[in-house]
Design a protein around this nucleic acid. Structure first.
Lengths: 195, 195
DNA sequence: AGAGCCATGTAAGAGGTTACATGATTAG
DNA sequence: CTAATCATGTAACCTCTTACATGGCTCT
């Protein structure tokens, strides 16, 4: 909502971004043209790998863009068009790029975050800084390996009662999912851009 | 908030319950005593297998209980105590039990629902109707096997462009997670109550 | 005397879904 | 003429999280 100058935006609460918002920063950073508008982004979120990973409806997309603008992570300029509706052209700021790259460097802590958060990190690291891909995968592998170790210890603990039996069922699923994620990460490692 | 008779509750919107609410129905159904109160439930959600599967804070727990009462899936009676605060004793209704068992019979459709929804179904089927355990696991296995087949076909499709390459990375993770879930289900199948 | 349990909640806000509103232009 | 595309949103409604309010009792 700013027009080049971010003017009188209230500094809002504290900043905490979700995967959708980080991915928007990633889209701005990896755009061929300098700026993108919301409608264009919305289209890109319905196709390809991005569409497989996350679903982002126009309502939320525009909402996120406003929030990112409020926090100064992007700037917005109006592009007037004679024949079509005006466009809000968004451009990443320094703060936005810094926020993005901090996020890209952090591996996720839980296995369930692999499916969404880590896939996004992988995607945008591939597009923006492929030289860091190897590190990203290795670090994530290390985090999950530690987790797997802890799960193994719990699974192998002696079963005292019925409840411990149920708990073990749960932990064995977690362990299986974590190991599958680790195997997948390792299968990625050649990184010679094969399948 | 009914007091034996559900009196003047507004019929509310349509009924759609989440995993937390279904698990509450399950807790009522598997209670040793006829009724349970919220505080007791809250304690049980912090320990054992249930605590591993789902986290349910008091605020949400009481909120869910109210909603289930509004829909007539449970009844609520006040038990006065002289020395301690009054208790709201909740009991499952016919409608509640029917809702629960319908849910228990349905396998989940996506791999990511295994972690929460299916584990709950497994847990409560074990407690309430262990004779259906085998069927539940087999049906879930079948659903995931179909999914895995579809993923395999997509993964093996020829890669045309860079985007298809990224998409394949994503699909390979999905496939790995789905296969891990299938293996785990199969490891459950002996059902001789071993680890 | 103070901590913590018992028991039930409310309050405030973040986050998300679904559906629709607008209004011009272009394609079938 | 109808439908879709372009472009940006609003409105209503859920859900979930986090934190705290209450007030008597018991334990140390």
């Amino acid at each position: 909502m700013s027009d080049t100058a971010r003017s009188e935006s209230p500094p809002s609460r504290r900043l905490r971004l979700g995967p959708a918002e980080h991915s928007l920063l990633g889209m701005l950073a990896s755009a061929e043209s300098e700026g993108i508008h919301g409608y264009d982004l919305a289209r890109q979120y319905t196709v390809g790998a991005l569409g497989e990973i996350i679903r982002l409806e126009p309502g939320m997309l525009y909402h996120h863009l406003k929030k990112l603008d409020r926090f100064g992570l992007l700037t917005t300029q109006v592009e007037r068009q004679s024949d079509r509706p005006d466009r809000q052209i968004h451009t990443l700021t320094e703060a936005g790029a810094s926020q993005l790259h901090t996020w890209l460097r952090e591996p996720v802590q839980a296995t369930r975050e692999i499916r969404l958060d880590f896939l996004l990190k992988l995607l945008f690291t591939r597009r923006l800084a492929p030289e860091r891909l190897h590190d990203l995968v290795q670090q994530q592998r290390a985090v999950l390996a530690t987790l797997a170790g802890s799960l193994e210890r719990q699974v192998n603990a002696p079963v005292a009662d019925a409840d411990a039996l149920e708990r073990r069922m749960v932990l064995r699923l977690r362990l299986a999912q974590t190991r599958a994620a680790i195997d997948w990460l390792e299968s990625l490692l050649p990184l010679g851009d094969d399948a």
